[in-house]
Simulated scan of single mutants.
Amino acid sequence: MPKKMIAEGLGTAILVLFGCGTAVIAGGDVGHTGISLAFGLAIVAAAYGIGAISGAHLNPAVSLGMMMAGRMTPGQFVSHAVAQVAGAIIGAAILLVIASGKADYSLAGNGLGQNGYGAGYLGEYGLMSALTFEFVATFIFVTVILGVTGPGSVAGFAGLAIGLTLTAIHLLGINVTGVSVNPARSIGPALFVGGKALGDLWVFIVAPLAGGALAGLVHALGFTRASA
């Protein structure tokens, strides 16, 4: 279990550092497409690097979906989630140290790639749009993960499929919420940024967990599973 927790923590730190880091440090150069690819490629790297150790969930919503699908125990879910949140905080802290080295960087002005919605945030989409997007996108994401790691899947391609799915989700949703689909990814940056990021955080905990749980339940019932 400690080895799995270390792997989940490390992988989630990589996700936050590469994904959020690209948004903060290089977002003006690479745009939304580049940021989307950074999140997707980070997942691919982690999936092939540590997947054999912990499954490379890197996301409490994914772990909850796995538990609802009967692939994890409640205790395993808790340990994974704790490690993922800790890893996200470490990743955000590393990003803050790096970004702070730029003379004109400010935490209040530039942030850490935190999620949000409403007035003053990217496309200024409202609460219902944010909740709907995060719930549906997480449901789709976890459904794909359960499918490509389950019976009948093509061996060796799971990491690529998962990474490309996360990329597509970001291409669609960056303007809506900055894309969470992952409570840990949202918690890490928000703890440092504070203010509105913390006020909006509940959306990026509740909606992804609900979407992940539903995906796991639907999979357990056999509707999205290759074999009953």
Score class of each variant (00 low, 15 high):
Leu166Thr: 12
His57Glu: 00
Val30Ser: 07
Ala220Gln: 14
Leu146Cys: 05
Leu171Trp: 11
Gly173Leu: 07
Val144Asp: 01
Thr132Met: 06
Asp200Asn: 14
Leu171Glu: 09
Lys4Phe: 07
Val218Ala: 02
Leu122Lys: 15
Val142Cys: 03
Ser129Val: 00
Ala108Leu: 11
Phe192Pro: 14
His80Gly: 01
Ala119Leu: 14
Trp202Arg: 04
Glu8Arg: 09
Gly211Arg: 00
Thr22Trp: 04
Leu214Lys: 08
Met1Gln: 13
Ile98Arg: 04
Phe135Thr: 12
Pro151Val: 06
Ile50Thr: 09
Ala13Leu: 10
Ala226Cys: 10
Asn115Glu: 10
Ala47Gln: 07
Ile35His: 07
Gly159His: 05
Ile205Gln: 05
Ala93Asn: 10
Ser36Asn: 11
Leu37Ile: 14
Arg185Ile: 09
Arg225Val: 05
Val144Thr: 09
Ala228Pro: 07
Leu160His: 13
Leu160Val: 15
Gly11His: 06
Ala158Thr: 00
Ile89Phe: 03
Leu217Glu: 08
Ser227Ile: 14
Asn175Tyr: 13
Leu96Met: 15
Glu124Ile: 01
Ala61Tyr: 02
Leu160Arg: 10
Ala42Met: 00
Ala220Ser: 15
Gly75Val: 07
Ala88Trp: 04
Ala7Trp: 04
Gly211Gln: 02
Gly156Gln: 03
Met128Asn: 15
Ala226Phe: 06
Asp104Thr: 14
Phe77Asn: 01
His32Trp: 14
Ser54Arg: 03
Pro189Glu: 06
Ala137Cys: 03
Pro2Met: 11
Tyr121Trp: 10
Ser36Cys: 04
Ala168Trp: 04
Leu107Ser: 04
Gly91Trp: 06
Ala99Asp: 01
Phe135Ser: 13
Ile50Val: 15
Gly118Asp: 09
Ala93Gly: 15
Gly49Asp: 11
Ser227Tyr: 08
Ala190Met: 03
Phe18Lys: 06
Phe133Ile: 03
Ala220Arg: 15
Phe39Leu: 02
Val85Thr: 12
Ala83Phe: 10
Leu58Val: 09
Lys196Ser: 13
Thr33Arg: 07
Pro189Phe: 10
Lys4Tyr: 10
Met72Ala: 10
Ser106Trp: 08
Thr132Ser: 15
Ile14Arg: 03
Ala155Gly: 05
Thr224Cys: 07
Ala184Ile: 01
Gly40Gln: 03
Tyr125Pro: 08
Ala83Ser: 11
Gly70Pro: 09
Leu17Gly: 06
Lys4Met: 12
Ile50Asn: 00
Ala52Asn: 15
Ala45Asn: 12
Phe18Met: 15
